[in-house]
Design a protein around this nucleic acid. Structure first.
Length: 220
DNA sequence: TAGACGATAGCCT
DNA sequence: GGCTATCGTCTAA
């Protein structure tokens, strides 16, 4: 369980965090905080508990066959967001790593809602369903509803993230989404390393990381 | 420009 | 645990 205090959310992870081996960045992203600044200025945050790495030479990486219009962000400088659509309907949020022209990224697969869980829950279920629950009860419901964080498509939906967020600067605390260094580091004994989910190529590579003690991991 | 195929999630058995 | 909705993107022609 993550703490509910917002802490110093303005401390965005610096460029140097992304400018290093992608597997290191993927593992160290566990425990860090994903921050969503809604258009009205309200914040929602979540503790990152599951990530996957996509590397150069990796057949499962979207950039494996070279640069295209849709995967161009992966070739950009580190610290940018790359959002892609999967199965025609799910958005997946990635943080680009490594220097420019090295197309590697970390997929954020699951978060534990911390601040503003009610807002995430509203975004996930829609205004119609949300209307059935009094506003003051939505935070509590959101913090229990695993649908809003456990899975890349789910967390994107709960945070209102779509393809237009590609190229967002995740190192800038003024961005609509960014990554904060706020959060306790996850000790090695609480990190599980496994193969990635839902891919057919490169399926044997152990490039997925998750927090063992978290209830919000998408799949064990 | 047609055809194939997903870095998923939800519903059904 | 199995099935499939659903559509953007890439590839080949």
């Amino acid at each position: 369980m993550g703490q509910l205090s917002s802490g110093d959310l303005s401390a965005a992870l610096p460029l140097s965090f992304y400018l290093r081996p992608t597997l290191e960045a993927a593992r160290d992203l566990l425990g860090k905080t994903l921050v969503r600044r809604w258009p009205d200025g309200a914040l929602s945050t979540g503790r990152i508990v599951e990530t996957e790495a996509y590397l150069v030479g990796d057949p499962a990486c979207h950039a494996f066959r070279g640069k295209t219009r849709s995967n161009a962000a992966m070739f950009g400088p580190p610290g940018l967001a790359y959002v892609h659509i999967n199965y025609g309907l799910h958005f997946c949020l990635n943080a680009v790593t490594q220097e420019e022209d090295v197309p590697e990224a970390v997929l954020i697969r699951a978060i534990e809602p911390l601040v503003g869980a009610g807002r995430m829950w509203e975004a996930y279920v829609g205004a119609g369903e949300a209307a059935a629950v009094p506003p003051e009860e939505r935070d509590a419901i959101g913090r229990l509803d695993k649908r809003i964080g456990a899975g890349p498509g789910r967390l994107s939906r709960a945070l209102g993230i779509d393809r237009t967020f590609t190229h967002t600067d995740l190192t800038d605390a003024a961005s609509p989404i960014y990554l904060s260094s706020e959060g306790e580091p996850v000790p090695d004994e609480d990190v599980v390393t496994t193969t990635r989910i839902g891919i057919t190529k490169g399926a044997d590579l152990p490039w997925r990381f998750y927090v063992r003690s978290s209830r919000w991991v998408s799949r064990r």
